[in-house]
Design a protein around this nucleic acid. Structure first.
Lengths: 108, 108
DNA sequence: TCTTTTAATTGTGATATTGCAATATTACGT
DNA sequence: ACGTAATATTGCAATATCACAATTAAAAGA
C-alpha cells in the first residue's frame, strides 16, 4: 500500500500524528529552534546555520508552514520567519492532553 | 538521497525527532491510547479495536517498542503491553523543554 | 502428538520522504 | 533594462514507510 489509513482514526489522533510527524525530523526541530531564537531569520540564515542545501531547507520550511506554525514578514528582498505562538500553544495543549490521559489512566 | 542526515544535528534534536516521528502516525497514537486505557491489552485486542491487519499492528508495536515506551508481560499465550511511565515522562520533559524554549525566546 | 491461539517475521507492492542540482521566480539595486 | 540576491519549484535518485498475505515460532490445551 504505502499510504496511511487516516479515515479509521479520529480527528484528535490525526491531529496529534500530523503535528508530531512534522516535528519528526531533526532539521525541522532545528529550524523551529533557530527561528524562535533569532529575530530576522530567513531561509539563507538557516541554510548557513544548519548545513543542508537551500532547496532542502526550503522544502522543510514548507512542511512546517503547512501545519500553520510559521508567520512571514517581507522586508526588501528578505522573507523573515517567526513562530505563530497561538498555533504552537494549541499544539502544545493537544499534546499535553495526550500525555495526561496516557498517564492518569495507566495507574488504574 | 532518501535518508536523514542525523549527524549534523545534536543529540537533543535527534531525540525530539525520534520520539515525535514515532508518534507521527495515528495508528501508533491510537495504540498508545488503548494500552494506557486498558489493562491486559495484547496484539489481538488492538487488531480488533483499531481495524488494521495483525502484521501491521505488530509492526507499529515494534516501532513503539524500539523507543523504549512499552513494557511486556507474558501470561499464558498472551503478551500484554503497558506503558513505561518513566520513559513517557522523560519524553514529556524533553518535549516540554522544547516548547518552553520555543516560546520564551520568541518574545524578545 | 496434534490442534489452536497468539504474535513476530518475511516478502512484496504502493506510496512517501529526503536531499540536491537545475531552473524559475520575485524583488532590489544600479 | 540589467545584474544580483533570496527563495520557491521542478525533476530525479535513493531510501524509508505503510499495509497486508503468507509464513513461522512458541506456547497452551485436548
Amino acid at each position: 500500500m504505502g499510504f496511511t489509513k487516516k479515515h479509521i482514526f479520529d480527528a484528535q489522533q490525526n491531529q496529534i500524528a500530523s503535528f508530531t510527524k512534522m516535528l519528526g525530523h531533526p532539521a525541522r526541530v532545528s529550524i523551529i529552534q533557530h527561528i524562535s531564537q533569532n529575530k530576522n531569520c530567513n531561509c539563507n540564515t538557516l541554510v548557513k546555520a544548519i548545513g543542508l542545501a537551500q532547496p532542502t531547507i526550503s522544502q522543510h520550511l514548507a512542511e512546517i508552514r503547512n501545519t500553520g506554525l510559521l508567520k512571514q514578514t517581507v522586508k526588501g528582498k528578505n522573507l523573515f520567519y517567526s513562530i505563530d505562538q497561538d498555533k504552537l500553544n494549541a499544539c502544545r495543549r493537544v499534546l499535553n492532553d495526550f500525555f495526561v490521559k496516557t498517564q492518569i489512566n495507566s495507574s488504574k
